[in-house]
Design a protein around this nucleic acid. Structure first.
Lengths: 192, 192
DNA sequence: TACACTCGTTCACTTAAGTTAAGAAATATT
DNA sequence: AATATTTCTTAACTTAAGTGAACGAGTGTA
């Protein structure tokens, strides 16, 4: 399992055997069953998640309703807001599919960062890159209509449409599930 | 001017005099006039921006129209997407007000990062924090109607509504300028 | 097998945003 | 000061999303 991880990391820094062993010895790779809740609202966790295989989602419960706002799939990760600023979490994280995850605690990270400066470089690059992507994603969202957003998703992440329930997709697109159904019917009509 | 910067940085790491001098000697603080374009579409710049005073914005030109997607004010910064992945920029950056900025080039950063590991820690923390904030902002955007988004902005960044033109605010809220006018009139009506 | 539950779709209706156009107000230009 | 230009608002109309309800398909459970 670690080879997938190291292949990915090689894109950002070249690690020595010693450094790889240090990471391996942390024993941070976990197999998680579909539906498992990784973080609950109100919890003050220090855990970050990185997806090696599978899919996880973040969601809020607003007026009793689940509102899914993000999906993370292979080679994507997130550090929850509550880890950064020591506050209770505002959202939930759960597994959309059976998944293999890296679950790391903030204290483990800072220890490794201290011992291997290269690891800090890695974390910096990863979060800088992720931030730049997140910004352009947000920009695209703002400048698109719901229908365009769905068409963008079809192009950019067709897999998501297959592996995720419609009502979660609708939240993710910022609309109601009924509107997504209608919108899809509209697109199909246009094609013919 | 540097004192404002160091006061801000002190929240993340404690710097020695030597480290502060290294930063000061880079001569990266610039005064920029309102309306100045800092980055153009198609350009392949390596410059990052951090606002000490004033306000800058990112915008796209889509079908001949400016679409403002983000504002950065005091103690906020951005590394454009094009700096991260060596591609021509998809957007513009320009000054909303006369501003004082830190403009740093990627090569300067990596040099300082190499010399002072502490500086790398700083950059990592800043971008991790910014990423977490950006994520929850995006979440709030997705789960809100345009009217709610405007009310949120009123609460969270009332200054922006004062210092920024309406049509740019409208883009930022993901709606047409006319819709923003209407929506504001509607809110005023409700109050009475 | 029967029953309950969730999920996606469809419909009718309501509400709000997009669009086009026009005019007023504020700014900039000559 | 007069004119042009940009910015904001308003209005009428169109289009699409929100809402509430109903229905069938699929899933799980007793």
């Amino acid at each position: 399992m670690h080879d997938i991880l190291f292949t990915f990391l090689a894109k950002y820094v070249s690690l020595t055997t010693e450094e790889m062993n240090a990471i391996t010895s942390l024993d941070i790779i976990h197999t998680v069953k579909k539906g498992t809740t990784l973080l609950k609202e109100g919890q003050q966790s220090k855990e970050s998640f990185f997806v090696l295989k599978g899919c996880i989602r973040t969601y809020y419960i607003i007026e009793g309703e689940e509102k899914t706002t993000a999906f993370y799939t292979e080679m994507e990760g997130l550090t929850p807001h509550c880890v950064m600023n020591d506050t209770p979490s505002e959202y939930y994280i759960s597994c959309v599919e059976d998944s293999i995850l890296i679950i790391s605690r903030a204290d483990m990270e800072s220890e490794i960062n201290g011992r291997f400066p290269k690891f800090e470089t890695l974390c910096r690059k990863l979060s800088e890159e992720r931030l730049a992507i997140q910004q352009t994603d947000f920009d695209l969202f703002k400048t698109s209509s719901p229908e365009q957003r769905y068409l963008n998703l079809l192009q950019r992440r067709p897999d998501l449409i297959q592996r995720v329930p419609q009502h979660q997709l609708a939240n993710y697109l910022g609309i109601q599930p009924q509107s997504l159904s209608r919108l899809r019917a509209r697109i199909l009509e246009k094609k013919q």
